[in-house]
């Protein structure tokens, strides 16, 4: 069975207000990079807060960081690196016009993204079991003797849930796009959408590559 053999035409359809396809593609790439700039600065604010907490309360932050599920975080990083690989695969195949293979890679990417979220959900559940949710007012907090540790644990929830939200958005867009891309003729008109989305996906990966050490590793 040959998935790659069903080559389809690869290209981008010109939208009327652009002069050339080349211009249209450049605009799309630049637009995504401009958006990613803002994403980086968004998360930078959280990383800065984590750093300041570490400076103000070193012991408490260390204690809190030791309670995070280090190994789930590490496995999740592996999962995201894997999803980046499948996303790169989808982009490569889209350039070749191998539509079915591309769709499979996209589905794999969405599956890995979902796996990340499931593991994250399990991690939250384990945190809940261990009374590591200081923002819940009706549930006693494990490290109640160390008030500043609350701050770091809470920041961990803000940062990871914001990242999770980005990932969830990414998966949703990816699934919609997979559905569109599975129809014939997609690659002939919108090949660059795969590439643009790929940038976003890799960047979520990049943010996690920064978040994992910031939250789990550096403060141990």
């Amino acid at each position: 069975m040959s998935a790659g053999a069903s080559d389809s035409a690869v290209g981008v359809k010109l939208v009327s207000h652009f002069a050339t396809v080349e211009q249209q593609k450049r605009a799309a790439v630049l637009g995504m990079w401009a958006w990613l700039l803002t994403e980086l600065l968004l998360f930078a604010g959280l990383f800065l807060t984590a750093l300041i907490l570490r400076l103000l309360h070193p012991e408490a932050v260390q204690e809190a960081a030791r309670h995070l599920k280090f190994w789930i975080g590490a496995i999740n990083t592996v999962v995201l690196i894997g999803s980046s690989l499948t996303m790169s695969g989808a982009i490569q195949l889209s350039r070749l016009g191998w539509q079915r293979g591309m769709v499979r890679f996209m589905l794999a990417t969405a599956a890995l993204g979902t796996l990340f979220l499931l593991l994250k959900g399990y991690e939250y559940y384990a945190d809940y079991q261990e009374h590591m949710m200081p923002f819940l007012s009706d549930r006693p907090y494990e490290l109640k003797d160390s008030p500043p540790s609350r701050l770091f644990v809470n920041l961990y929830y803000v940062a990871t849930s914001l990242h999770g939200l980005h990932l969830m958005t990414g998966i949703t867009i990816l699934l919609v796009m997979t559905w569109q891309a599975s129809r014939p003729g997609f690659l002939g008109q919108h090949q660059n959408r795969i590439e643009i989305f790929g940038l976003y996906w890799h960047f979520i990966d990049l943010i996690w590559i920064l978040a994992f050490p910031t939250l789990y590793v550096l403060n141990r």
């Binding site: 012991e59 003797d145 160390s146 008030p147 500043p148």
Partner: peptide, 20 residues
């Protein structure tokens, strides 16, 4: 305010409550 924060005196156990 926060006896647990750090700087526990040697030879003592941490038992004092925080007054923050």
């Amino acid at each position: 305010l926060n006896p647990n924060r750090q700087k526990l005196a040697a030879d003592y156990k941490q038992v004092m409550p925080a007054f923050r």
